[in-house]
């Protein structure tokens, strides 16, 4: 329970894979609809889920990360059947055909439902991904202590 007596869900999103992000946002949005207080803590590859479609990086290595792993949530590849971009195209098409929202629509809905989207400050520093590269509505960066406090008080903890 959180301080308001609501049930709560605390989730680490480590993955930047299309399929895992889809699962993460569906669970988060479902939980928010069920009246839970939801915290999503995005770290390492998961940071992509918060990004606009921009190139990042200041040093040589950071720019390389930006180049290899640039773009926003719509650039994420499925963990299987990636096929150099074909997989993403195929899954997007399949999801659309079946009336499932796109990842960026799911993220918009999460923000609308009051899901707390937090980025890991340390990953942001290492990957050279600044707050300005995130979409509006993402909360200020936090550390693991913040997440652990949320997780400790949460009824459900997930790692994706």
């Amino acid at each position: 329970m959180d301080e308001n007596g609501k049930k709560s869900l605390a989730m680490v999103v480590m993955s930047g894979d299309f399929d895992k992000l889809t699962g993460a946002f569906i669970i988060a949005n479902g939980a928010a609809a069920m009246g839970m207080d939801v915290t999503m803590f995005f770290t390492f590859w998961g940071l992509r889920a918060l990004k606009k479609n921009v190139r990042t990086g200041s040093t040589f290595f950071g720019k390389m990360v930006g180049l290899m792993y640039g773009g926003g949530i719509e650039k994420s590849h499925p963990s299987k059947f990636a096929f150099g971009g074909m997989g993403r195209w195929m899954f997007n098409k399949m999801m659309k055909n079946h009336g499932v929202q796109s990842l960026s629509e799911m993220r918009d809905l999460a923000l609308q439902l009051g899901v707390g989207l937090y980025a890991c400050q340390m990953s942001m520093d290492v990957m050279e991904i600044p707050q300005e590269s995130f979409v509006d509505g993402v909360k200020d960066p936090v550390g693991v202590g913040f997440f652990l406090l949320k997780a400790q008080n949460a009824d459900i903890q997930l790692f994706i």
């Binding site: 569906i26 949005n29 479902g30 609809a33 069920m34 009246g35 009336g99 929202q101 809905l109």
Partner: peptide
């Protein structure tokens, strides 16, 4: 109609 998980639940909760 036509909405998939979790949207039916989300829409009910929003309304």
């Amino acid at each position: 109609k036509g909405l998939l998980c979790p949207l039916p639940m989300v829409k009910v909760s929003q309304n």
